[in-house]
Design a protein around this nucleic acid. Structure first.
Lengths: 100, 100
DNA sequence: TAGGAATATCGGGAAAAGTCGATATATCTT
DNA sequence: AAGATATATCGACTTTTCCCGATATTCCTA
């Protein structure tokens, strides 16, 4: 768990928003065709549309969040789904409470 | 409490170190002349020496940490002392657990 | 009140991050 | 195998951050 990498990942307004959207996907995204929110999360295209940035930028952002450990990704056919890794958030909360 | 501002403040190796040093000042700094660690914290000069960066850079970093709310400062004579604002860390930990 | 010490601020050059369009890759469908 | 669709990567440009030296400010003391 690289703290610095995590804080850098969190240092962007859009990335913070994405994390919050993914907290309650059913509240922020239309139903998906090929997979359930709880299982795999939300696909890149839906997140991109909501973010209002280009596909390449959002793909990059999701990759940053994944590398930091805050998101997990699943490839299903031509779609990549991202969902939160709640353990990572809990661990981060504890690190702030005890280590930092 | 501006989350984005806090995460940006935490996105730097030296600033993270400073926060950790200030967690146990007596362990990381020599005794001070004019004030007690618990009361006001550590003065800029001592932090600067330990950080090994220039005075201007460290002063700037401390200011960033203070503006984010993670540090508090006290001016005593010609010295400015910085110490942690533990409430802010507790609040941040909770925000990560519940909001982000 | 002049000089010295501690800190803050300013201006700038280098490095990193933000963001895009274009292109590559992977997968599905026919 | 070809075309379509979803995502990833690349190259470039702009903005922000990093970090410095120089200078300004504040406060102390002789």
């Amino acid at each position: 768990m690289d703290q610095l990498e995590i804080f850098k990942a969190l240092s962007n307004k859009t990335r913070l928003q994405i994390l919050q959207w993914l907290k309650e996907p059913e509240k922020h995204f239309p139903p998906q065709e090929h997979a359930a929110f709880d299982e795999v999360g939300v696909c890149v295209g839906q997140i991109q549309q909501k973010a209002g940035l280009t596909q390449s930028t959002v793909s990059e952002y999701l990759s940053i969040l994944q590398k930091s450990g805050l998101l997990e990704s699943t490839r299903l056919g031509q779609w990549t789904y991202y969902k939160r890794n709640e353990e990572a958030f809990a661990a981060l909360s504890n690190i702030i409470k005890s280590e930092i």
